[in-house]
Design a binder for these strands. Structure first.
Length: 843
RNA sequence: GCGGACGUGGCGGAAUCGGUAGACGCUGCAGACUUAAAAUCUGUUUUCCAACUGGAAGUGCGGGUUCAAGUCCCGCCGUCCGCACCA
């Protein structure tokens, strides 16, 4: 085939990308009176190169954005950069480059990579969170929350790396050691800034109910994360005259309590440690214990008897020993628990070890009051036994009754407890938003005055030593108190990068210079109509963004409750892995297939094909988007991203798959070239079957794009293409090819534009065209295929006019020779007829 | 341990309400065109029996409901994911 009849993406891609840019095709107009669509994909971290996972993510969003535009919507489809974070600082430490220049250079590269894929983005709204034009507004928002009392400072335990002199996130502690330095991580108390997300626990939980276009999985994960439990706060008098307060979800089991246990950090434990060396040693041992999942699972329940006892509120003769225990957490509830061994497994284990009484207070029925335990606790439902006046009550009734009594007598009350904790946002790092606070010697932490915002990061910084470069900068932190004018010290911690991504979707919608956003413009675009990203953000980012939005709404800056009306979590892109005989990884293009086996191309030694896994550099199974766009063009790559796998599942990259997409691009191109083919005579013909197929395809492609079922939309387009190719020339065929250009436009925009421009051309851009309308009258089949079953087994199919009455269908079915052969003279007991579908003859 | 999702050909996957299982793509095989290759086109590709018409089995396993089950119900098995000493 000559080059002229091939689609050449290297020429076409850039041509159309330039034209879209010149014409501002995808620039969103705030003032538009069209219906609006805000399509957003999670913005990338500028690591240096676009990853194939980004390509999949942005292709999905792009299809939807282009489709909505063709439906006549004003579409907001922005892109920007989540540009603060540790990798930039690591690069600074390793290569001596400034985090800012490293980041900005990466952004340049990645922007160019994205542009090559032809995404319908409004680049006018692009921003990077690392620029003062963004983070300055973030500081203003932070101060608004500070004024409203939603930000506070408190001492908190953190993972401290003594070598790097920085706080580490839990994920950065590997086997108790710092991930970079390898140093033993210490628990250290530091003053940290917190956002009061717990104030919104109930709202955030209830709000999930309205998010019916979110995956159930994500809602459930958030629900569990918030972790609401209903119970009672109970107070017991101690032998030393003080009081111990515990939270329990099972106040009904109070008669089964046989001990109390407190966390190592609990004041009672601290007091005991001060008075007694052994107690101090035990407390130390508890703190040294690992916190990894595996360690916790195998860790033995250990306790230390403080010698104190607690008075049981219902039994004056009953004194419960108070232990310090390694399984009690300080930061949940009150840091103290009531031990009920019979009905809680941990308490059971503990009581068994220390020979404490195990009392049954819940049983299947009253007769089982003395039934022994079968080696484990019984946390289930039942009725109360051995519980004095409460005997016979069901568990739920008993909870209410005992809480009511506690309230009456003043030793407790009903309480709702959350697992969710306040969000610690302080980071001892340079490359983040400076926390806009000044520590005044007289007034404590004071907000930086608004006219001094942004608090910009200093450029001249030193990464040669570990620790926070802001803290050791010679001048930056030395300021004066905004109130007294006396010397004061700037806060040198920066904000968690999750703060940056908690409001970027607002800034995309509205970006005035003098304030974070204009609520009136926000009101036009928000909530985001479709948000697309990886499920790894199911909890943190999505919960923080929901919180931030609600917090801004509560303080009156905004009127949006839920930022993302519809959420879609896409799967990963995976690829086969290969290994050498010696176990080292091989890239997929270093091997080839040799019969059923794989061999290394370079030296013909055998290779082993490993699992299909998420692309990662270490396993050498990555493909670079630039390389494949070079080879196949943007459209083939985009088409591959949408084909085969349902978008929520993983997509396996394969050479054969992308080759197939490339062939399809060329097939389409040949077909587009035939748009007016067949001559005048042929053009007069109408092909009803093809017309119907076309309109069925329009309907199904539309429906599938709406549902983000791109793999099904792709299949429908293949199906139509096959049908057009097989059909003989006719006006219908030309029309079908014409419409096919529109149908593929959201997915393969470059070839669609190229085809739209060839004669007979309607002019303009296909990107601005209207999405084809379905002719409902053409959807109706006039003939249908009826399945004929005998005793539920398919024996024949017959063709019938649509809507044929039941008795006629039955007659038609019975007329079938195959059916008669299968009935074989037997008596017909019953005939089931489903109009336009099937006839089942029961013998 | 708790919670959730999923199991369909050689592979990715389709299959509105329970109504023709395997659409569509990939791979493989056979053929056409070509000096040849590439590209393209045609046929074929769940398994087994029969090889002309056909027949049987079949959606992880075992039961059940129904005229009819991939789909609904009960019980297993397996894979993946999230949380995890949360009182």
């Amino acid at each position: 085939m000559s080059e002229a009849t091939r689609f050449n993406p290297h020429v076409a891609d850039t041509r159309w990308q330039q034209i879209w840019e010149e014409q501002g095709t995808f620039v969103a107009d705030d003032a538009s009176d069209k219906p609006r669509s805000y399509v957003l994909e999670m913005f990338p971290y500028p690591s240096g190169r676009i990853h194939i996972g980004h390509v999949r993510n942005y292709t999905m969003g792009d299809v939807l954005a282009r489709y909505r535009k063709m439906q006549g919507h004003e579409v907001l489809h922005p892109m920007g950069w989540d540009a603060f974070g540790m990798p930039a600082e690591n690069a600074a430490m390793e290569k001596g480059v400034h985090p800012g220049s490293w980041t900005r250079e990466n952004i340049e590269n990645m922007r160019a990579q994205l542009k090559r894929l032809g995404f319908a983005l409004d680049w006018n709204r692009e921003f990077a969170t690392c620029e003062p034009e963004y983070y300055g507004h973030e500081q203003a928002l932070f101060l608004k929350l500070f004024e409203a009392g939603l930000v506070y400072r408190k001492e908190s335990e953190v993972n401290w790396d003594p070598v790097d002199m920085t706080v580490l996130a839990n994920e950065q502690v590997i086997d108790g050691k710092g991930w970079r330095s390898g140093a033993e991580v210490e628990r250290r108390k530091l003053s940290q800034w917190f956002l009061k997300i717990t104030d919104f626990a109930d709202e955030l939980l209830d709000g999930l109910g309205s998010l019916d276009k979110w995956p159930d999985k994500v809602r459930l994960m958030q629900e569990n994360w918030i972790g609401k439990s209903q119970g009672g706060l109970l107070r017991f008098g101690l032998s030393n005259g003080e009081t111990i307060e515990v939270f329990s979800t099972r106040p009904d089991t109070i008669f089964g309590a046989s001990f109390m246990a407190v966390a190592a950090d609990h004041p009672i434990a601290q007091a005991a440690a001060e008075a007694d060396e052994k107690a101090a040693a035990f407390v130390k041992q508890c703190k040294a214990g690992g916190t990894t999942a595996a360690e916790l699972e195998t860790a033995e329940k250990l306790g230390f008897d403080t010698g104190l006892t607690a008075q049981h509120p219902f039994d004056p003769g009953k004194q419960l020993p108070v232990y310090i225990a390694n399984f009690v957490l300080m930061d949940y509830g009150t840091g103290a628990v009531m031990g009920v061994p019979g009905h809680d497994q941990r308490d059971f284990d503990f009581a068994s070890k220390y020979d404490l009484p195990i009392i049954r207070v819940v049983a299947q029925d009253a007769a089982d009051a003395c039934k022994p335990f079968d080696g484990e606790a019984e946390p289930g439902d039942g009725v109360l036994v051995n519980s004095g006046e409460f005997d016979g009550l069901a568990v739920e009734e008993a909870k209410a009754a005992i809480i009511a009594r506690a309230e009456e007598e003043g030793w407790g009350e009903g309480q709702v407890q959350y697992r969710l904790r306040d969000w610690g946002v302080s980071r001892q790092r340079y490359w983040g938003t400076p926390i806009p606070i000044i520590h005044s010697p007289d007034y404590g932490p004071v907000a930086v005055p608004e006219d001094q915002l942004p608090v910009a990061l200093p450029e001249d910084i030193d990464f040669s030593a570990p620790g926070n470069p802001l803290d050791r900068h010679p001048t930056w932190k030395h300021v004066t108190c905004p109130i007294s004018g006396k010397p004061a010290v700037r806060e040198t911690d920066t904000l968690d990068t999750f703060v940056n991504s908690s409001w970027y979707f607002l800034r995309f919608a509205s970006q005035p210079e003098d304030r974070p956003f204009d609520p009136d413009v926000i009101a036009k675009w928000l909530p985001v109509g479709q948000y697309i990203g990886g499920v790894e953000h199911a909890i943190l980012h999505l919960l923080y963004a929901r919180f931030w939005t609600r917090a801004l709404t509560r303080i009156g800056m905004l009127d949006v409750k839920e930022p993302f009306a519809s959420l879609f979590t896409q799967g990963m892109v995976t690829h086969q892995t290969f290994k050498h005989g010696d176990g080292s990884w091989l890239t997929p293009d270093e091997v080839k297939k040799n019969g059923a086996d794989w061999i290394v191309i370079a030296d013909d030694t055998p290779a082993t094909a490993g699992r299909v896994e998420k692309m990662s550099k270490s396993k050498k199974n990555v493909v670079d988007p630039d390389d494949i766009v070079d080879q196949y063009g943007a459209d083939a790559v985009r088409w591959f991203m949408l084909s085969d796998s349902p978008p929520e599942r993983d997509l396996e990259w394969s050479e054969a798959g992308i080759e197939g997409c490339w062939r399809f691009v060329q097939r389409l191109w040949r077909l587009f070239g035939q748009i007016g083919a067949g001559g005048a005579g042929a053009d007069a013909e109408v092909d009803r079957a093809l017309d119907r197929k076309l309109h069925q395809t329009i309907a199904s492609v539309s429906e599938h794009i709406e549902a983000l079922a791109f793999n099904k939309a792709v299949a429908a387009i293949y199906d139509l293409t096959n049908a057009i190719e097989k059909a003989s020339f006719s006006a219908s065929r030309s029309q079908a090819i014409h419409v096919l250009r529109l149908l593929v436009a959201p997915m393969m925009p470059h070839i669609a534009e190229e085809a739209w421009a060839i004669a007979p051309s309607p002019g303009g851009l296909v990107a601005n065209e209207r999405w084809p309308q379905v002719d409902e009258s053409l959807l109706i089949e006039d003939e249908v295929t009826i399945a004929v079953q005998v005793k539920g087994k398919l024996r024949d199919t017959v063709t019938a006019a649509k809507g044929l009455p039941k008795d006629e269908l039955e007659a038609l079915a019975l007329a079938s020779e195959k059916v008669q052969r299968n009935i074989d003279g037997a008596e017909i007991r019953k005939v089931i007829v489903v109009p336009d579908r099937l006839v089942n003859i029961v013998i």
